[in-house]
């Protein structure tokens, strides 16, 4: 009789623990604090479990996921606001303010920090990590598989010279996600070939001397002037005959599935093929 009781309680406890674990591995009140985190959370989580996303993702100029964010509470990332939402998981980026992070740690709220991925491998890892934390491992795996398929469909052998030129003369050199994206879509990155590492300045003179076939410009916002954009309108670039293609900011700032759109645009500059429906 005693043994039966022990067995029963053991089963009960284990079951209870399993249930508890199951409950723990599926947060119900997810709060996301930055744009890139928002996109992954929106892509992976069940919408009913999302408590709040950042205000940036609701701007169609900032993100392809603006529609998905419809109806959700938009936060501004302040510590007070986050606490008042009673989250059971907070996803943020490395640049989220120290103050907010400290407050969350003090209150014992689970915090997942996402770094900016520098390669596709890191992008997939990040999707897996977020999926794990959200308890949506299957969904994560599915998303990764779909992304792989779409990326491979756009892959071509390297045959053109490309350069990404940001306002103020910055470019993405070797070891960056954008560099990899260029390689996938058939471009030799003029910057990495010239030895530029990471996100650095690349003088306009060098652009003119080693002109790419396609100059890729990061379009920040429509019709808003900045000193930085002036460089892109420089006569020196106009005189060199090169094709200019604009990739909107929202297509490749985060390592989210939206980067496929960025790849598509890069590919289209060299006569890319089928529309990949997002």
């Amino acid at each position: 009789m005693l043994t039966l009781l022990r067995l029963a309680s053991f089963c009960f406890l284990t079951l209870g623990a399993l249930c508890a674990m199951a409950g723990q591995s599926a947060p119900k009140r997810v709060v996301s604090l930055n744009l890139c985190a928002d996109e992954l959370v929106l892509a992976l989580a069940d919408k009913s479990s999302i408590q709040s996303v950042s205000w940036l993702v609701a701007d169609p100029q900032m993100s392809f996921y603006a529609d998905e964010a419809g109806g959700l509470h938009l936060n501004r990332g302040g510590a007070e606001e986050v606490l008042s939402l009673h989250p059971d998981l907070v996803v943020a980026g490395t640049y989220t303010t120290r103050a907010t992070r400290t407050v969350l740690e003090d209150h014992g709220i689970p915090l997942l920090i996402l770094e900016l991925p520098e390669s596709l491998v890191e992008v997939f890892e990040q999707i897996r990590t977020v999926a794990d934390h959200l308890g949506r491992q299957e969904r994560g795996a599915g998303l990764i598989a779909e992304l792989r398929r779409q990326i491979e469909a756009l892959r071509v052998p390297v045959q053109w010279r490309g350069l990404v030129y940001h306002p103020n003369g910055f470019t993405n050199g070797a070891g960056t996600l954008v560099d990899e994206m260029l390689a996938i879509t058939g471009y030799e990155n003029v910057a990495s070939a010239s030895g530029v590492q990471g996100f650095s300045q690349f003088s306009l003179e060098r652009v003119v001397m080693n002109p790419p076939d396609v100059l890729v410009i990061n379009q920040v916002a429509e019709d808003l002037p900045s000193m930085a954009d002036q460089i892109l309108a420089h006569r020196a670039l106009k005189r060199s005959s090169l094709q200019i293609v604009e990739v909107p900011f929202k297509a490749w700032t985060c390592g989210s599935p939206a980067l496929v759109e960025g790849l598509r645009i890069l590919r289209s500059a060299t006569g890319g093929q089928e529309e990949i429906s997002r």
Partner: peptide, 10 residues
């Protein structure tokens, strides 16, 4: 040429 562009325009 690229050189003259750099020279004249920059």
């Amino acid at each position: 040429s690229a050189s003259t562009i750099v020279f004249l325009e920059l």
